[in-house]
Design a protein around this nucleic acid. Sequence first.
DNA 1: TATTGTTATACTCTATAACTATA
DNA 2: TATAGTTATAGAGTATAACAATA
Lengths: 155, 155
Amino acid sequence: MATPAPATHDDVDLDPPVDLGELSSNLGYMLRRAQLAVFEDFHRSLAGEDIRTAQYSVLLVLRLNPGLRQNQVCAALGIKTANFVPLLDGLERRGLAERRMMQQDRRARGLFLTQLGQTTLLRLETLVAEHEARMAALIGDDDRTRLIELLNRLV
Amino acid sequence: MATPAPATHDDVDLDPPVDLGELSSNLGYMLRRAQLAVFEDFHRSLAGEDIRTAQYSVLLVLRLNPGLRQNQVCAALGIKTANFVPLLDGLERRGLAERRMMQQDRRARGLFLTQLGQTTLLRLETLVAEHEARMAALIGDDDRTRLIELLNRLV
DNA sequence: TATTGTTATACTCTATAACTATA
DNA sequence: TATAGTTATAGAGTATAACAATA
């Protein structure tokens, strides 16, 4: 038996590579690793903006669907209503979105972007576009489109 | 302006569909939704086995790389060593894996599957194979292979 | 001095149950 | 009775700092 090289500070490769085996073709595992890698680049791209992925998705939905009830935003994005409250509190405190009483149903609140929310979202979108371009560069534009389409079929 | 149908219990469609806009082509968002959907099916498939995705990946790695140090498993799977301790404690408590002292370096522990760990893993793998088959049925076998390959390029 | 594994701890995300005010 | 939003809380998952034993 060959003596394995001891792992010292002089070694360039400290450890032999670990064989992941079938894990490399496990869909859930690969999706998780890819998602973590993409989110990491996303957060790096928005460093200094203090915006979470969930908050960004809410801003996008509110611009396209102004007046939605909290309830509806939650259903569309898969967020529990209980968890949505502090998320929205944060956006409101920063003046990016607002709750408005609805005259038709005084239990419900319609959600809207503020003017600041609109301009902030535009700024975020340029950063996100750079992020998306970086991701597309990794796999090519055609394959990016194909990937999105495949992911859509899994949901 | 047409009066929107009030959302009552008699409506089949309670809410108008929400337009997700560019979110549908946001790579991170779609990866997250897809990953959640796949993990949900994974957990349903392993219901009653009380195995987390991270634990399953550790079992797979240990079978293929017996004797790895905790350190190395963590690096391969992207787990912090501090978080790996309770995860491994759980596997050891259930008799699926074990730490063995290493004579070369008494700080380190080599990790191994037990006999029970091996047979348990075989049982889990048949359930996971059914899960993977179900996922492949959603997109087709060729596209599943292509998807894995695309995800690999993102990591 | 540096490294392996460990403990303690904190922060984010997610999940559930119970409450309020309205319907 | 049921629903929209809220509060409180608990559980995962993940992150950092500091420590003991060993190198």
